[in-house]
Structure formats: structure tokens, C-alpha cells
């Protein structure tokens, strides 16, 4: 109706355990130290693209509004530049919190529709699990092919550029003995992560 939307949050919308679960991830313990000063959003170069600024994400996580937090763009826009961590007056591990939220979102299969970053993460993860290394060009082709093949076609000029500067390689990089990595990783398990099967 004329673009009017109803916004209200009932207390039953909150997940009382969410905040503690995130704070239990090492690096995220200081989440409840936040005084909401906004320094993180002020310094984050990507905050102007986010639907929820980093400060809002901390606030909503602390309050327990899990659905809002796991479905926002913010966590996938974060490039882990750590500018916020270095400026935060309460020394909160904001980037670590973003990672914890990313892992949680991947596990629950929740992210904004069509957002390429989670798809990239999954492809990356699978490649490393199998081969132990990634090959940049192959990675881009395989993930864009999945998420956004029109863009892939649109990047033909860049492809040509790379070819002419002899940086275009479709060789699949791999470890000599990927088994050595797989055996290490097989016994290491995250309570908070892992791709949803």
C-alpha cells in the first residue's frame, strides 16, 4: 500500500541464545563491550554499501535478532581489512564476529538471494578440500559460471588482457600430496562451521 511497510520487533522474534553462541567463538568474546560509538562503521570502507552497518550488526546480534543478522549483506561485504578492529575503542574483534556470522549463515544456508560471495566461499572450500590449492582463473570461471554467467561473459576483455600479459592459466594447481592435508583436516571440526550438505 503506497510502499508502506510495517516494522516492529516483538520480543518473541529474539533468539535468546544467539548472542552467547556467537560470543563463544574465540575472538568474539568482547561483543558485549560495545558502546555503539560507530567508529567501526565510520572507518569501514564498505559500510556505505551495507544494509546494516557493522555497528548495527553488533547491536542486533547482542539483542538476539538472528534472522536480521544472518540475512543481511553486511557479513558478505566485509573484506576482512581489520580497519574496524584497529580503531575500536573497546577492542572488540569485529572482523572475527563477521567470520563467525558468515560460518553460521553458511551452516544454516541463509544468505541474500543471488549474493555471489557465499557461493565463492563454497567453491573455494571445495577446491581446497580436494586439491589443497586454488587456481585463480579456474576459480573465477567456475564460481561465476554458477552465480552469474552473464558477468563472466562480460569479463572477456579482462580475460584477453590476462592472456596477453601471460597470466592466463587454466592449469589446475594442486599439492603434490593432497592426502597429507586431508588427513590433518579430517580430525579438526568446527562446532560453528562446515558447509551444509
Amino acid at each position: 500500500m503506497y510502499g508502506i511497510k510495517r516494522h516492529i520487533r516483538y520480543d518473541s522474534d529474539r533468539d535468546n541464545n544467539f548472542s552467547d553462541e556467537i560470543m563463544a567463538v574465540p575472538g568474539c568474546e568482547n561483543l558485549d563491550h560495545c558502546i555503539q560509538c560507530g567508529t567501526c562503521s565510520g572507518t569501514c570502507p564498505l559500510s556505505i554499501y551495507m544494509d546494516l552497518t557493522p555497528r548495527k550488526v553488533i547491536n542486533l546480534t547482542r539483542a538476539g535478532f538472528k534472522d536480521d543478522v544472518l540475512s543481511c549483506h553486511t557479513i558478505w561485504l566485509c573484506s576482512s581489512c581489520y580497519a574496524c578492529v584497529c580503531q575500536c575503542p573497546r577492542e572488540i574483534g569485529i572482523t572475527d564476529i563477521m567470520y563467525a556470522l558468515k560460518q553460521r549463515a553458511m551452516r544454516e544456508g541463509k544468505y541474500p538471494k543471488g549474493m555471489p560471495t557465499p557461493v565463492l566461499a563454497r567453491v573455494f572450500y571445495n577446491t581446497v578440500s580436494n586439491r589443497g590449492r586454488i587456481s585463480e582463473i579456474r576459480l573465477v570461471i567456475s564460481f561465476l559460471g554458477r552465480a552469474h554467467w552473464q558477468r563472466l561473459i562480460g569479463m572477456w576483455k579482462i580475460g584477453l588482457n590476462l592472456m596477453s600479459s601471460k597470466r592466463f592459466s587454466l592449469k589446475a594447481e594442486r599439492m603434490d600430496r593432497p592426502g597429507e592435508l586431508q588427513s590433518v583436516l579430517s580430525v579438526i571440526n568446527s562446532p560453528n562451521g562446515g558447509v551444509r550438505k
Binding site: 560509538c37 567508529t39 562503521s41 565510520g42 548495527k56 580497519a83 580503531q87
Partner: peptide, 29 residues
Amino acid sequence: GKVAEITDWAMTPEEEGHLVVRVEDTLAG
């Protein structure tokens, strides 16, 4: 909003030659 840093690089013509404050106006969001 707490100011994270003061810089002197400009995004728009009005900012040229001035110091620039980038801050989250937390109340306006």
C-alpha cells in the same frame, strides 16, 4: 558518532582543499 580518522582526500568537489571527517551518524543511521 565517534570519528575514526581525519583525512584530506576528497570524494566530491566541495571537499577539495578541506579536511574531511567520515563518521557514522548513528542516530540518523
